[in-house]
């Protein structure tokens, strides 16, 4: 039933070469699609066990800082993006009372729209970023865990921590072919009210099909260094990273 070029699927997860029944997709392809949609729907509503993630971090010698948004459940998370962009009162007061120390960057991790993504790739990506930052001599503040957050939460946390660059790792919305993809957003001079024009984004971090941890971490370190040097981020900061940039650093 499939088309002669079905074998080209070795180059892509895209649903190519499906064949056809008249103008429509053949029954088996249709039912595979329905199953994939059902799985993606379930993935959206899966909550995040942040305690388990914190323990796994601690076991790797990384100290988590647990924060919260005012959102209690997934239903509300989907309907109120505004609430996902701010801390709850207790978290805000805690960060305000903390002694301010100067760091280059803060790192925030949230399940976003896919708890599966952060469970599957979060820790490994975090380790790769910590390693890349240390090779670039970038100082990293506390790693914050904030369930049910939106990207702009990085502005409030970054502002309260007084860092130059705020980085948030979030689970991207589940697709049919991948429900476990992470995105990373970088903002220079994080302040409440920043728009997306001042953010740089890396998406589709989900090895082996998507971006690898090392490639994502190297690019993030490159963008962080550029942001610090030029005092900006977002559309004005073009990604012109040379190949093997991180590897070449040690040889300078």
């Amino acid at each position: 039933m499939t088309d002669p070029w079905f074998a080209l699927r070795r180059f892509t997860q895209a649903r190519i070469g499906q064949g056809r029944a008249g103008c429509a997709t053949p029954t088996s392809a249709l039912l595979e699609f329905q199953l994939a949609h059902a799985m993606a729907r379930d993935a959206v509503h899966q909550p995040w066990c942040v305690g388990g993630f914190a323990e796994a971090m601690a076991a790797k010698g990384l100290q988590p800082l647990k924060l919260a948004t005012p959102i209690a459940d997934r239903e509300r998370y989907l309907q109120r993006p505004d609430l996902g962009r701010c801390l709850d009162q207790a978290s805000r007061e805690y960060l305000q009372s903390r002694p301010v120390k100067a760091y280059d960057a803060a790192l925030i991790i949230s399940n976003g729209l896919s708890s599966a993504a952060v469970d599957k790739h979060g820790l490994a990506l975090l380790e790769a970023i910590a390693d890349a930052y240390s090779r670039c001599r970038l100082s990293l503040g506390p790693v914050c865990l904030a369930p049910n957050a939106r990207v702009a939460l990085a502005d409030e946390i970054g502002e309260l921590l007084n860092v130059c660059v705020s980085v948030i790792i979030v689970g991207e919305r589940p697709g049919l072919s991948a429900a476990d993809s992470l995105g990373v957003y970088l903002t220079y001079a994080p302040r409440i009210g920043n728009t997306d024009a001042v953010r740089n984004c890396l998406s589709n971090i989900r090895p082996p099909e998507g971006l690898s941890y090392q490639a994502a971490a190297a690019k993030l370190a490159y963008l962080t260094r550029q942001a610090l040097q030029r005092g900006l981020s977002g559309v004005a900061l073009k990604d012109d990273m040379p190949d093997n940039w991180l590897e070449s650093l040690g040889q300078d």
Binding site: T12, Q13, A14, R15, I16, Q18, R20, C23, A24, T25, A29, F33, A36, H37, E172, R173, P174, G175, L176, S177, A178, S181, N204
Partner: peptide, 16 residues
């Protein structure tokens, strides 16, 4: 292909 955008993670219309 098959309505499924494997990069943007959403569904649209297909060639079919």
């Amino acid at each position: 292909p098959g309505s499924d955008d494997v990069m943007l993670a959403y569904q649209s219309t297909s060639f079919h």
